[in-house]
Design a binder for these strands. Structure first.
Length: 222
DNA sequence: ACCCAGGGTCATA
DNA sequence: TATGACCATGGG
């Protein structure tokens, strides 16, 4: 499949962005104080509601197990117990430990910041438990790289808008947004945050398009 | 009681 | 390449 294919034009994407921005305002993402917290959150939120991730992160902090070394030094069962609210706690415990081991091995996140985006992306994807979306969350929100994050919400919104079919591969969609918009970290940051905000405040709670901020552009009513 | 949530891995064909 | 099983809690 040809990744570098033009599937969007910039003005369409910017109109949708403006509609969302007008409706919800700036989101100031990611909800996390440090790059480390962003990365941990990105793993914990895999197929999981963020409210549950907050509990898990809160538990880790309260137990003072919220660093590479602390997570690596703690037993599997101890970590699993703390992150229990985020679901998949056994698998996610392994993924957190895998990722912390990776961070240590690479010389910490500061060493990773020296790498170019493509190299860093490949490295992140080489960690077991870090897939495309998790890696791109990290690249955009922890490393401030111009990477457009694709998630289920993005697919659903833009297929409802009739701009994609929804079965495009992850890379086709990501390249589609990045080619049309050009590298713009601030825009990508706000855009993805707004898509998630829109899903939580509208699409997830209301089945139909009536009242939707982008409804005038939505030709597929569910 | 059901459905799904800011996915990823692994086995199979 | 493309499906399907599996992981698991919590809120609607």
């Amino acid at each position: 499949m040809d990744i570098n294919k033009v599937i969007f034009n910039k003005s369409d994407l910017m109109m949708v962005f403006q509609s969302l921005l007008d409706a919800y305002g700036p989101q100031d993402w990611w909800p996390g104080e440090t790059a480390f917290e962003v990365m941990i959150g990105a793993i914990l939120t895999q197929n999981t509601a963020w409210s549950n991730v907050e509990k898990a992160i809160g538990n880790l902090k309260q137990a003072d197990i919220f660093s590479e070394t602390a997570l690596l030094d703690s037993s599997h069962d101890e970590v699993a117990q703390l992150i229990r609210p985020s679901g998949y706690f056994n698998i996610k415990t392994d993924r957190l430990k895998q990722f912390c081991g990776f961070l240590q091995q690479q010389g910490g996140e500061n060493a990773l910041r020296e790498l170019d985006t493509l190299k860093l992306r490949k490295l992140l994807l080489s960690v077991k438990g870090v897939g495309p979306e998790t890696a791109d969350d990290m690249l955009l929100y922890a490393f401030q790289r111009p990477v457009f994050v694709i998630d289920a919400y993005t697919r659903r919104l833009f297929s409802r808008l009739g701009m994609v079919t929804g079965d495009e591969s992850y890379e086709v969609l990501r390249a589609g947004f990045e080619l049309a918009l050009g590298p713009d970290t601030e825009l990508f940051n706000e855009y993805h945050a707004l898509i998630v905000c829109h899903a939580k405040n509208f699409c997830n709670t209301k089945p139909k398009c009536s009242g939707c901020p982008v409804a005038n552009r939505c030709t597929i009513p569910e």
